[in-house]
Simulated assay, not measured.
Amino acid sequence: MEPTRTETRHVNGQDIFLRYWGDESLPPLLLLHGFPEYGGAWVDLAPYLCAHFHCIAPDQRGYGQSSAPEGIEPYAMAHLMADMAALLGDKPATVLGHDWGASVAYALAMFRPELVERLIVLNGVHPVPFQKALATGGAQTKASQYIPVLRKEGSSRKLSVDDFAGLLELFSANMDLSWLTPERRAAYHAEWGRPGRMRAMINWYRASPLQVAEPGRPISLPGFPTERLQVRCPHLLIWGSEDTALLPEATEGLELFAADLTRVEIEGADHWLHHQKPKEVAEAILDCVGVDL
């Protein structure tokens, strides 16, 4: 189902391209994509939700048709969060994030709580449990070794050659990409191929303060300001059980940061659950907010 409409808005000094599904009189639902997707990633899920929500799906900074400023510093989380806060204005919303979009969603819930009525995360991680898992040298550390590779200079060029063969290999490693039809793949290639976008997407990783240990070589961490990193609104975590990029250990201890947490597991889905099982994901969301599909 194609969006009801699209537009570009200038917020926080950036041009942000937006897709909308559903009636604007309905409660707003901000949909935040991850790497290496764009706002069109919600084309499978939004049709199941737009009878109950006004779905708002931006291309985040550096992606798709939105601004892609040069350098690494513009992709610090403070700026990424500020983009979405400016987009919401003074109207609170349900915020749903996947992958890197979940990181932005968590930041909004923690630091701009007046804008987030409910937080929904699909296979995404709170920064503290994730950083702890990355530091252990264990399974999540091993699964995340692609992060130091992406941070290296020249990675965007390597991922782009041969019609994005390297990116597609990373995208699909040990996961089901049967949802990526030839038509959809062409759409993704068009977005990845916009000038400067591949480097901008990678700069999200470079700007992140996350430390990734080497497998079998744990690193020590400083203390965390637990009180400042609380999610105080209702929080729904929906997890594709076959994800090989983000493992369950990356969410251990989340209850310490989200007192009102509900966990739902989707069997037969991996990191790309919003494409593979959109109806089941939508049912979990709507059940949590108390309405029927």
Results as ranks from 00 to 15, higher is better:
residue 53 F to P: 00
residue 143 A to H: 03
residue 130 F to E: 11
residue 84 M to P: 00
residue 130 F to D: 12
residue 74 P to R: 08
residue 56 I to P: 07
residue 119 L to V: 09
residue 121 V to R: 07
residue 125 V to K: 08
residue 88 L to E: 08
residue 124 G to M: 02
residue 122 L to R: 01
residue 100 W to F: 15
residue 143 A to V: 09
residue 129 P to N: 09
residue 97 G to D: 02
residue 119 L to Y: 05
residue 144 S to P: 00
residue 139 A to I: 11
residue 143 A to F: 03
residue 101 G to I: 01
residue 101 G to M: 04
residue 133 A to V: 10
residue 64 G to T: 11
residue 141 T to Q: 03
residue 115 L to P: 00
residue 117 E to A: 13
residue 58 P to S: 02
residue 143 A to S: 14
residue 129 P to M: 13
residue 54 H to G: 11
residue 114 E to F: 06
residue 72 I to H: 07
residue 139 A to C: 02
residue 104 V to G: 15
residue 59 D to L: 04
residue 62 G to W: 02
residue 65 Q to C: 06
residue 76 A to R: 14
residue 136 T to R: 00
residue 106 Y to V: 06
residue 90 D to L: 12
residue 105 A to W: 02
residue 57 A to G: 02
residue 68 A to E: 05
residue 76 A to K: 13
residue 138 G to H: 14
residue 87 L to W: 06
residue 81 M to W: 06
residue 132 K to D: 06
residue 57 A to C: 04
residue 142 K to E: 03
residue 66 S to D: 07
residue 107 A to D: 11
residue 130 F to H: 14
residue 75 Y to E: 10
residue 100 W to L: 13
residue 99 D to N: 07
residue 131 Q to M: 02
residue 95 V to S: 00
residue 76 A to M: 11
residue 81 M to E: 15
residue 146 Y to D: 07
residue 123 N to R: 03
residue 144 S to V: 00
residue 99 D to F: 06
residue 94 T to S: 12
residue 71 G to N: 12
residue 79 H to L: 13
residue 87 L to C: 07
residue 119 L to K: 05
residue 65 Q to N: 10
residue 75 Y to W: 14
residue 80 L to W: 10
residue 134 L to C: 14
residue 134 L to T: 11
residue 134 L to S: 13
residue 51 A to K: 00
residue 68 A to I: 04
residue 69 P to A: 05
residue 124 G to E: 08
residue 122 L to I: 15
residue 132 K to L: 11
residue 104 V to Q: 11
residue 113 P to F: 10
residue 92 P to K: 10
residue 81 M to Y: 03
residue 58 P to G: 05
residue 53 F to G: 01
residue 104 V to F: 04
residue 73 E to I: 13
residue 96 L to N: 01
residue 130 F to S: 08
residue 134 L to G: 09
residue 145 Q to P: 05
residue 118 R to Q: 13
